[in-house]
């Protein structure tokens, strides 16, 4: 747990990955949370850094809202989600007095906090640090990518929903990655198709295939489709471990497959 040397508090972190999307509400926080749970499932230690300062969702999704962050000599101690301390989380949600407090901040203040989040959280030893971001290509993103650059992040997972309106924004996010030199691990298409629990008819609520087509068009890997699954939404609302509790659901194999591809990507270097 030594927090010395050039990498400071990130010295014990194996791989850093960012979860990005140009579009809001496509499931960045959902994918971040489920990836963390899936990686834990295969025995990895995972940290999540939530840099969505105006709309932090991860504390709710992991049922740790209302927890406090403590300060120690080397910085902020993240909140541990479980007894085994296999998932730790840092979010602005832990710094708010009341959960409904609005963080009405302009860029410079957001940037200062993000820098602090990256340098001052005592993660300890982690296999993966997942950074969940707000939508867009602005202050939070530029600051996060700049501050993480010395730590050589593994890359970014881009999340989209299938419809053209969302894919359009994610195209811009791809340009952002290219311009900032951030590697794209791949694209996830979320909310693709809803299977009616009563008659098993599949309806493509937000159309279908947009994410895959974008991946092909941009020449980046396509990591898979995650169907709309009310069990998944429900378990996130209640902060339950979907990966543990619903192995038979339709979204499970998709999420497990995405986690596996990320693991494969790290194995040659030995994590």
């Amino acid at each position: 747990m030594e927090a010395v040397g050039e990498r400071g508090n990130l010295a014990g972190v194996g791989h850093i990955l960012l979860v990005l999307s140009g579009k809001g509400g496509v499931g960045k926080s959902t994918i971040s949370t489920e990836l963390a749970l899936a990686l834990r499932h295969v025995g990895k230690k995972v940290g999540i850094l939530d840099v969505d300062l105006c709309g932090p969702s991860i504390p709710q999704m992991l049922k740790v809202q209302g927890k406090g962050v403590h300060q120690c000599d080397s910085g902020w101690v993240p909140v541990f989600v479980d007894q085994d301390k296999s998932i730790s989380l840092m979010s602005i949600g832990f710094l708010l007095e009341k959960p409904d407090d609005a963080v009405v901040w302009r860029g410079p203040k957001k940037n200062a906090l993000i820098k602090q989040f990256i340098s001052d959280v005592t993660w300890g030893d982690l296999d993966f640090l997942i950074v969940d971001t707000p939508p867009g290509t602005s202050d939070e993103h530029i600051s996060t990518v700049e501050s993480l650059r010395p730590y050589k992040p593994l890359g970014a997972v881009l999340v989209t929903t299938p419809q053209a309106v969302s894919v359009g924004d994610v195209r811009r996010e791809l340009t952002f990655c290219k311009k900032t030199g951030l590697q794209v691990i791949g694209i996830v298409e979320n909310m693709s198709g809803f299977v009616c629990p009563h008659c098993l008819e599949c309806t493509n609520l937000f159309s279908k295939g947009g994410g895959e087509e974008l991946a092909r068009h941009a020449g980046v890997p396509f990591l898979g489709c995650v169907p709309l699954d009310p069990q998944l939404t429900q378990s996130l609302e209640e902060g339950r471990d979907f990966i543990q509790e619903f192995p038979k659901s339709s979204a499970f194999p998709a999420l497990a497959h995405i986690a596996q591809q990320i693991l494969d990507r790290t194995s040659p270097q030995g994590s």
Binding site: F194, C196, P197, H198, C199, E201, T203, L205, L228, P230, T233, Q234, E237, E238
Partner: peptide, 17 residues
Amino acid sequence: FVCPKCKIESQIFPPTT
């Protein structure tokens, strides 16, 4: 969401609160 086939409504984003 009302399934176009069986006409039964599902809560895709359930209003848990």
